[in-house]
Design a protein around this nucleic acid. Sequence first.
DNA 1: CTGGGGAAGGGGCCC
DNA 2: TGGGCCCCTTCCCCA
Length: 372
Amino acid sequence: MLIEDSQSARAMMTKKYAHCPLKKRPVLVREERPATPPTSPPHPAHISSRLYFDYNHCDMENDEPENLSTKPEDLSKTGNYPKKASSPIATASIKMEPREWSQQQIDYLAACRARLEPTTELARPTPQYAYLPTLYPGYPLEELYPAAPVLSPPAHPQLYSHYSPASPPSSCSPPPCPEDLRSPGSVSSDSGVSVTAPRRPRYQCPDCAKSYSTYSGLSKHQQYHCAAAEGSLARKSFSCKYCAKVYTSLGALKMHIRTHTLPCKCHLCGKAFSRPWLLQGHIRTHTGEKPFSCHHCRRAFADRSNLRAHLQTHSDVKKYSCSGCGKTFSRMSLLSKHLEGGCVAPGSSPYEYRPEGHAHQNLVPPPTVHAY
DNA sequence: CTGGGGAAGGGGCCC
DNA sequence: TGGGCCCCTTCCCCA
């Protein structure tokens, strides 16, 4: 939702969302965009920050907690929220449109849509800046898409052979090849091979006994997540003005405050996030950018993890299996539902989970999974 | 009811 | 030590 940051607007929002916790209330966003489009286009590499990031206006002191809820109950109560967005590629329609969008924002999305009309190349990643020619008609393409700096050659060039010359410049990464979906350190269950890494020392939180593989992890936990540690006032000296939590360092406090102020705001819908990369993922829901494609069915995804989950659907034997009946599932949640429903087969509990890189002794033999 | 996709958050790793 | 990125997980919604 994008509304004027005026007193009346604030009053309206306060009244309208009185039943909501502060963090769930809609955000009040001041429209920063100019009344008319700029005459010269920004460099594509700067588009994202120009259009969406508002770090210059991040007011860590004054930002109010904002509504991030897109849950339907909120929508039904107010009627002001659109339905949940679905794939623009599939529907040729971006549904997540607040009523209060400015004409310019609507035009902007129209420009995005024009470039996102269904094509036969669904697997092709949506060019990150494909809307530029529409947004800046008359501008030569070579200026809208300046020569890209040297790109690292893809590991599997054949997978990218469908790229067009007008594909976005350097800041738009090519779609991942299947191998890219795996983290370097992880052991893929796809291979069915379990490799046990040398046991590393664990760093345990003295306050809540949670342990982490790295000191950095423990440090982050203590700074941002450990409720028990927050009670150790003797070690803390920086308190949060919003919730009175106390931290040992100013940096930790600043990071915590971001969860209140949510400084990364989407200028299209006003939704705010604590971390920039969360906003980047959210922006894809507006632009329809889907850089991750399945080479089995050519379906594209905005999120790599979602592609990974999708790839499971192409496997005959899936990642999560019920030890009772042997049925496999592509998702943990589906296995959980299966067990909650009552798998009557003997030995059905506990269920088996084969996360990548974790060897469980009592698991069924590794499944045969299609190589990507 | 089940399976799948969309979206978001937390932890781990690397620089 | 902090930030960025990636992966995993979870929740919700829909067909």
